[in-house]
Structures are given as C-alpha cells and as structure tokens.
C-alpha cells in the first residue's frame, strides 16, 4: 500500500495526516508546535507513520502546509493552508461552500466550490482578536482550561459585553467584570460572542453561502460553534476531524501530485 502525507504546521499545534490510495484517512496526529518548528513537523509525521502501522519509505509524497509549511523540510511540496482547508472540507462534505477556519493566531474565511477549489478568501490582519489566542488568554485570566470554556459559555444567562477585542486588554475587561460580580459563565458568553462577531464580520467580506463549516483548532470549542451560529443565523457543520482539515487537504494534494507524477 502506498500512502500520502499532509503536515500542517500551525502557530500553536502541528497536525499530520496520512491517506491511502483511495484518499481515506488512515492516521492523524496532533503535537504542540513549540519553538522548534522543523522538529515538530518531523515528530508529527513520524507519529502518523507509526499510527498507520507503515514505514517511512511507504509514504510516496508529502505536502507541507500552514504558516510553517516551508519548515517541512522533508516534504516534496508546499500548499497554503487556505487551499488545503478547502480541499479537506470538500472531501468530507462536498455541500460546504463557506469555510471558517479559526486557528491559534489567525482566522480565515474561504469560499469554495463543490470540488474544493478556492473561489475567494480573506485572512485576518495581524491581530489576535478573533482567534484562538483571544480565547486562550481569556481562559488563562479565569484560571480555566481551554476545554472548559466552551461548555461553560453555553450556561451564560446574561452574557456580558466586552469593551475591547484586544487580546491584551481583554484581561482588564474580564477582571473588571469579575469585580462587578458577573459570573464566569456570563463573562465567557461575552468572550465567545465577541470572537464570533469579529470572525463573522471577516467572513461577510467573502459572503456567507450555505453550507458553512468551521475548521481549525477552535472548532473543538462548542461554545464558539454556537456563538457563530447565533451571529450567522445558519447551522455550522463541524467535522469530527475539523482540526485536521488542513493536514487532510495537504495529504489529498500529496496524493494527487504523486499520481500525476506517476502518470
């Protein structure tokens, strides 16, 4: 059996996916990126190879993606994460026309067709507002883990309004709300709503066309999914492998390119 790999080096986490000749995902691995981007990419890839129960030499083609795509030094090619997320999501759900990808430090909205070709896209500016980092900082101030904040935000009765979407100054805002006696749930409701509003404003620049999918690390946060649905007024599709869509797309590009080379 021949395999094809995609390695998505994100700012916070690195994902590796292996697909087989049929394009089915046979391994998926997630590691923290840390400070040594090349090593993180290698580690994720080798763990995916082990998870698939195969050998390095059975992987025919490797595509790197994500902000650290050029650090996948053992790869054959690079494709941007936008093209890869589009490719990945079209593979798991061809009805999706708008992809919202929220990662650790960026957010993107991508308009695609049924084959996963990118028709339009927009990226956030260099600002952590509207990204996973904003949620991470908020969780830190409230002394909660990232896994806790989404479900607890759903318990908000009267979500607070934040006066800033600045990832640095949100800390002051949260402390002020705590001092005023607001519950953690209401504060988290406000935090998720603020991020969702920011991302939806970005997505409206390419136009919202159904079905809408959420990908990237933040897709694991159920509070964020609900907040986006509330602001968009449409249901949001979240694949069980939403976190791996970039790596899956990269692996699918690897498969296409290997087959093209083989003729």
């Amino acid at each position: 059996m021949r395999y094809f790999a995609g390695v998505d080096v994100g700012s916070t986490q690195t994902k590796a996916v292996l697909v087989d000749e049929a394009g089915d995902m046979v391994a998926k691995v997630l590691v923290d990126t840390g400070s040594n981007v090349v090593k993180a990419a290698e580690r994720a890839f080798l763990e995916a190879v082990a998870q698939a129960g195969t050998r390095r030499e059975d992987v025919d083609y490797i595509v790197g993606t994500g902000y650290g795509r050029f650090n996948v030094t053992f790869g054959n090619d690079q494709v941007t994460e936008i093209s890869c997320h589009a490719k990945g999501i079209a593979h798991v759900n061809p009805n999706v026309r708008t992809v919202i990808d929220i990662g650790g430090q960026d957010a993107k909205a991508i308009k695609i067709d049924a084959t996963g070709d990118v028709k339009d896209f927009v990226m956030n500016d260099k600002c952590a507002a509207g990204t996973g980092r904003f949620l991470g900082n908020s969780a830190e101030v409230l002394n909660l883990s990232l896994d806790e904040i989404g479900p607890r935000s759903l318990e908000a009765k009267v979500p607070v309004r934040l006066s800033t979407v600045c990832t640095v100054f949100v800390e002051t805002d949260i402390l002020s709300h705590l001092a005023l006696g607001r519950s953690v749930e209401n504060i988290l409701g406000g935090v998720h709503s603020a991020v969702a509003a920011r991302v939806v404003a970005l997505a409206r620049r390419v136009g919202i066309e159904r079905d809408v999918a959420l990908t990237g690390g933040v897709s694991r946060n159920v509070g964020m999914v609900r907040a986006l649905e509330h602001h968009l007024d449409v249901p949001i599709y979240v694949s069980p492998d939403a976190h791996f869509m970039g790596a899956l797309g990269a692996a699918l590009f690897a498969r296409e390119r290997a087959m093209a080379v083989a003729g």
Partner: peptide, 18 residues
C-alpha cells in the same frame, strides 16, 4: 511578509489548480 505571501500563494494556487 508571511500574510501577503500566503494570500498571493493561495491566489496563484486557485488559478493554477483550477
């Protein structure tokens, strides 16, 4: 220039990969 580079690369890919 990573943001602009990613935007341009994606745009190029969207035309070349069509």
């Amino acid at each position: 220039f990573d943001k602009v580079q990613t935007e341009v690369e994606t745009f190029v890919e969207s035309l070349l990969l069509d």
